[in-house]
């Protein structure tokens, strides 16, 4: 056996054998265990390993870590077939973040709870709050502070109207099921659970239709205030059930149709910045 002089580091041949994959089990184990303790020898491996492979892997790593990590909400959207790009556009506004959903759910649970424990008053409260939840969602998706980069977004070729409808659809898709579930838990006829649906949709389309003229914060605020005043007046002088009655339903349907028509005929207005009409 030819003894080499003892050294504190692995020699070139040993490192090369490891890098080339030709080190047998014993030599390999020796060099590997030394590498785990010796930063200098680890650094020497850089010149011995295929640099092309390392570079291409680095590009892939960079691609992965730089690309924004999809949020929980975005991953959920992907499951429902929404493209990653559309998902990105959705999460840019507060309406698509957890805080808003939690707030909306809390408001509905509160109203639902009130309806369970204090029948008449509580029912009126639920019928008042439930249709407004999607409207507040629209304000959170399109209102003044909702999109802090609004000035930039509006100057891109992406249709602002399309963006608004995309975000509205997401607001409805998240808030309607919650409101429906709370409604189902209420006493009284089952149709109550969806009685607020048409008013809710009417309010959303009304606020959207007025948004290009006065801004979504003002339009949704005005809609919410008007409905609250009507609801309080109705439940003071009459039966809270009237809030879900035929007059409200038919009225809502008419309003909804008118608002949707306005949106469709004035779709291009959304491409202008707020207040530029």
């Amino acid at each position: 056996m030819t003894q080499q002089p003892r050294t504190w580091h692995a020699n070139e041949a040993e490192l090369r054998a490891l890098a080339d994959g030709v080190a047998g089990p014993a030599l390999g184990a020796s060099v590997e265990s030394h590498l785990m303790r010796c930063g200098a020898c680890r650094a020497r491996m850089n010149d011995l390993v295929d640099g092309v492979l390392l570079d291409s892997v680095w590009s892939a790593i960079r691609e992965t870590v730089e690309a924004p990590r999809p949020s929980v909400f975005e991953r959920l959207l992907r499951k429902f077939g929404v493209s990653a790009e559309s998902g990105r556009l959705l999460v840019a506004v507060p309406a698509m973040r957890g805080a808003w959903l939690i707030g909306a759910t809390a408001a509905l649970l509160f109203a639902g709870g009130a309806a369970l424990f204090a029948s008449g008053f509580g029912l009126a409260l639920f019928l008042l709050v439930a249709p407004l939840v999607p409207v507040m969602g629209v304000a959170a998706a399109y209102g003044g502070d909702a999109d802090p980069s609004h000035e930039l977004v509006v100057t891109t070729p992406y249709s602002a109207g399309r963006l608004l409808l995309l975000r509205t659809a997401a607001v409805l898709a998240t808030s309607l099921p919650v409101a429906a579930l709370v409604g189902l838990a209420l006493p009284g006829p089952a149709w109550l659970a969806v009685a607020w649906l048409i008013p809710g949709l009417a309010f959303v389309s009304l606020s959207l239709a007025a948004a290009p003229f006065v801004g979504a914060t003002v339009s949704s605020g005005a809609v919410a205030a008007t409905w609250s005043a009507i609801a309080i007046a109705v439940s003071k002088i009459g039966d809270p059930m009237d809030l879900a009655g035929p007059a409200v339903q038919v009225g809502s349907l008419v309003l909804c149709a008118a608002a949707v028509t306005t949106i469709l005929t004035h779709f291009r207005l959304f491409d202008l910045p707020r207040g530029q009409t």
């Binding site: 030819t2 003892r6 020699n11 014993a26 030599l27 060099v31």
Partner: peptide, 25 residues
């Protein structure tokens, strides 16, 4: 790989850090 360690490889295991390697061999 559960293979036998060759004599040549054992001969290479000469440096100080290779205690584990020699023993493994």
């Amino acid at each position: 790989d559960a293979v036998d360690v060759s004599a040549e490889e054992t001969a290479l295991l000469t440096v100080e850090y290779s205690d584990l390697g020699t023993a493994l061999a």
